[in-house]
Design a protein around this nucleic acid. Structure first.
Lengths: 142, 142
DNA sequence: CTTGACTCTGGACCTAAGTCCAGAGTTTAC
DNA sequence: GTAAACTCTGGACTTAGGTCCAGAGTCAAG
């Protein structure tokens, strides 16, 4: 398979395929006499797997590690499972963080409605800012 | 206030303060005869506000816009609230995405336990890979 | 009046994961 | 046999939000 076909079947760009090769995610492919890269069809699967792992939140470096463990024949269900559990932890942490932020925003909106607005007030809304005097209390470092 | 004091009170680095100035988040401060920047104390508040908005998921550009609206005296509770609601949407989308990913991981781990493992198998675990033959079915593009 | 801490400029560098480019050569379909 | 589509290299560029640096000048405490 030529690079273009691999790329389109794996749903990435040609540049990405070459980038993956540079990064070591893909091994150096064979070459035709002309210099064109020649790929085995399994390359498509390897790229798809990499993308799937990316969707799970793994970085390219982590994915490369995993694939190399696979290549070395040392990857087992057990040996790689901790990574999945780590990913789970990361996701949970992130969700918790987002929820905290969400709460902060909703209270802020609430405060806005009940006149305790932190944003519009501090951002110079309701109470007109005295433009002639840089020392006004409500002015934020302007 | 000198830049170092502002930075430490706002809990950012000196470089960040200067970066914010370059970006237009902070107005150009006054200067001592020596060239040292001289800040009004409200600068600390302005930076803290910016950081808070960053925590809410706003980009620097958006924050700069909001602060400029404040500076121009056109920011009101109503005029800025849509931004908060937009932030809320973004957060909800992100949480939903993460939850989908989370489910994918847990099913994957489950499959692993029940022998339907997609990862260890496809990553070449349990079944030793035939290293002498690049065309093996289970090999991922190596 | 010395010493150490602070500040100045402005441009290079960082991370992550690609994307884009020119100019040249190759392959394929008609 | 020719035109269109493909591929090559390798280095520069992108986004976001900073971080780091050298070499020079300034400030504050003792």
């Amino acid at each position: 398979m030529k690079i273009g076909q691999v790329a389109s079947e794996a749903d990435v760009t040609i540049d990405t395929v070459r980038f993956y090769e540079r990064r070591g995610l893909l091994p150096e492919p064979g070459r035709r006499p002309s210099g064109f890269r020649e790929y085995p069809p399994s390359t498509v699967e390897r790229i798809r797997m990499a993308r799937m792992l990316q969707n799970l939140g793994f970085t390219l470096d982590e994915i490369i590690e995993m694939l190399h463990a696979h290549d070395a024949g040392t990857a087992t269900c057990d040996s790689e499972q901790w990574r999945l559990e780590g990913a789970l932890d990361r996701i949970d942490t992130k969700i918790a963080e987002l929820r905290r932020t969400r709460r902060l925003i909703t209270t802020t909106i609430q405060e806005c409605r009940t006149g305790q607005c932190r944003f519009a007030t501090r951002l110079g809304g309701d109470v007109p800012v005295d433009r002639s005097n840089g020392t006004a209390e409500s002015s934020i470092g302007r």
